[in-house]
Write a protein that binds this DNA or RNA. Structure first.
Lengths: 350, 350
DNA sequence: TTGTATGCGTTATCAT
DNA sequence: ATGATAACGCATACAA
């Protein structure tokens, strides 16, 4: 790796002069600058990341931490994040912790070392990350959690998506449609979140049948280690075996819905005539699904825009450190009629 | 950010002693070490990434550069890469250039700054990246290109997947099945690659019908800016409108096949009875597809293992710099019968 | 066992 | 317009 000193030696100037030439400092002879830039290009000079970061105390890098890149949901969020961050000259680098809590913690710890200026993280649970998250606050490194439980015990910025109102609306539609036997495929979630979702379902399902017992209809298996599609597939098979009267399957992730749909088709079950399939994501998976679904649009463009906004605010106002910020995005219902795809376009970084 | 000096001041020792204590150096009083570690933990000390990198000259980080994270193909590759790299103590960070050649170049340039020890990159074309790629070679920064054209003009390590033999086998199967009118949906690729694929198709299609003119049946639109699924959808619609006799649609990416399948279903076309759908990827999309497909398994586990192997080799043998390395992975045909999913398991990082 | 001193590559301040 | 020097945080060679 060629460094500033090497160029200085060749040109016969001091390394300070070379630095000035390369950084657009005006207090330099225009001829010298040209010569130095030419030599630098010829020698293939690239400024050292570590040297620069150490000297400047910042990296112009935003890290984003996601649980599972094989789910296009996160990719779409990242696209939005990149679009917004790049406007302010920030580059986005991605860490995938593969739904492993050890990796989740490791990456969060790693980024405390100052390899980036801020972090946007889909944190699964604060149980084992609590101290680390609090450390961000103490170090004044901007951290925005997305879609995580809201707790006042720890200091952190948070953006959540309100899915419950949308789900309530969907439950109303399905109830009016005469559906009586819903089953739920959740992700592997913390007991607290699970109980929140459970009580929600109990609350909001209109006209519950006499034997309606949500607790028994909630399927929340540990990850199979293959894919979320495999999870959805296996659980849907089990549901149709154990509760063949099921007429609604609600999934957390679109990829689970995809696997579940495959299982239903294999079993000769018609979608949505026999069983309606619902999911909380909306990506190209649901947008081009080969069977009609009801989905929730989490407005990833807004979500990512807000996430960057929070980070940006912190970066620009390091001196006046505001209390923990909160934002909520409202998810909206997308009911696909027949096979007509929606016209929703993905925003592009242009 | 608390640094070693801060701890030294508190403990009343020199910063060198603190450094030794924290790094498992044996030449230190065991009591001092305990005290220092306790204080460090209490103060929330995290070693500075920049400081460490500058001092040690390496980062223990592997970067991977991909064109489109919304395609699960890359996520699966990355999982394999992480599994292998982590065995050697390396962390994987991900850059998504969103199929934008400007970002592709920007990221490649950025990593020349030494923010990582090596790069695995899906490079779209060498046209605008040629000089940058050559710079890696000159700087002895390990760079492995995956799935890119093989050229001797530039020095770089390369792993390719041989798809052509598999495609040839598929064409044979379909030909024997009486199919006569294939259409191809490719990705937006360089003219050279396109002409290679074209001549291949001309060569290998057995018993071509008299009017078989592959050139006219190859659809290669510029990206829609929405998603690969949308590309597949739109092109399939166009194919069925312009060439309703089409009985095979071959796609490059599984996501394109997904969109194409949706289009066919909308048009009332049966898969595979009326039109067989073929794609070169195999991920959960194809593994749980709701209609039978013929796919190529690119053996992402082998691909990622080889990629890390090449990087690792370079890292361990900086002194004896070998000539450009080449490896080829053979893709194999997966013909899905009915709806029975394959049992292929994804490898896990355990 | 511990302290002092050095250098990794960069930018900025202060002289000249 | 340019050069000398310092500082960023860390690990280590060398001295004590």
């Amino acid at each position: 790796m060629v460094k500033i000193q090497d160029i200085a030696r060749i040109v016969g100037k001091s390394h300070a002069t070379v630095s000035r030439a390369l950084n657009g400092n005006t207090r330099i002879n225009i001829e010298t600058r040209k010569e130095i830039c030419a030599i630098a290009a010829q020698m293939g000079y690239r400024p050292s990341f570590a040297g620069k970061a150490l000297r400047e105390g910042c990296t112009k890098i935003l890290s984003v931490l996601v649980p599972d890149l094989s789910d296009p949901f996160y990719a779409e969020f990242i696209n939005g994040l990149r679009l917004n961050a790049s406007k302010d000259g920030y580059d986005v680098v991605i860490y995938d912790y593969d739904r492993r809590s050890d990796l989740e913690l490791r990456y969060l710890e790693m980024m405390l070392g100052g390899c980036c200026d801020g972090v946007v993280a889909f944190i699964t649970s604060f149980e084992h990350t609590k101290e680390t998250v609090e450390r961000y606050w103490a170090s004044k490194i901007p951290l925005v959690a997305v879609g995580t439980p809201d707790t006042r015990e720890i200091n952190y910025d948070l953006i959540t998506v309100n899915l419950l109102d949308g789900l309530s609306e969907i439950l109303g539609i399905l109830s009016a449609n005469g559906r009586k036997h819903p089953a739920y495929i959740l992700e592997s979630m913390s007991p607290e979140t699970l109980s929140r979702v459970r009580s929600f379902i109990l609350d909001r399902w209109n006209n519950p049948p006499a034997d309606f017992e949500p607790k028994k209809d909630i399927y929340c298996l540990p990850p199979s280690g293959v894919s979320q599609a495999d999870d959805g597939y296996r659980i849907a098979k089990r549901i149709m075996r154990e509760k063949p009267e099921t007429d609604v399957i609600m999934t957390w992730h679109a990829v689970q819905a995809y696997g579940a749909a495959r299982a239903l088709i294999e079993e000769g079950v018609r979608i949505p005539d026999d069983v309606a399939v619902v999911t909380c994501d909306h990506t190209w998976i649901t947008n081009f699904a080969p069977c009609p679904l009801i989905t929730l649009d989490q407005h990833l463009d807004l979500l990512s825009k807000d996430a960057w906004g929070m980070i940006r605010n912190r970066l620009l106002n390091k001196d006046e450190w505001l209390p923990p910020q909160r934002a909520i995005i409202q998810a909206t219902v997308l009911k696909q009629e027949n096979f007509f795809r929606t016209d929703k376009k993905k925003s592009r970084n242009c």
